[in-house]
Amino acid sequence: MMGLGMVGTGRKKACRFCSDALISMDYKEPKFLTFFVSERGKIVPRRLTGNCAFHQRRITEAVKRARILALLPFTASHR
C-alpha cells in the first residue's frame, strides 16, 4: 500500500467515506482520527487523504473536537 501519499502518481483516489457509508466519523474515536493527522498533529490535507470536500470538513471538525477533549494533541511538542 502506498499509504496516504499518492502525490505525482496521477491517480485520483476515491473518497473512502463516499464509497463506504458505514464508516463512522466520531470525535470520540481518536484511534481512527490519527489516520488523518500527521506525526506533528497537523490535519492531513485532502490532496493526500483523497477525501472529498464534504467528508474532509467532517474529519476536520472531528479532529478539532478531539483536540479540545485532549484525545489528540494540538502539537507534538506538548510535554
Binding site: D26, K28, P30, K31, F32, T34, L71
Partner: peptide
C-alpha cells in the same frame, strides 16, 4: 455507541 479505540496514547 462508539467505544474509544485503544492505542498507545489513549
Amino acid at each position: 455507541e462508539p467505544a474509544f479505540g485503544s492505542d498507545s496514547r489513549v
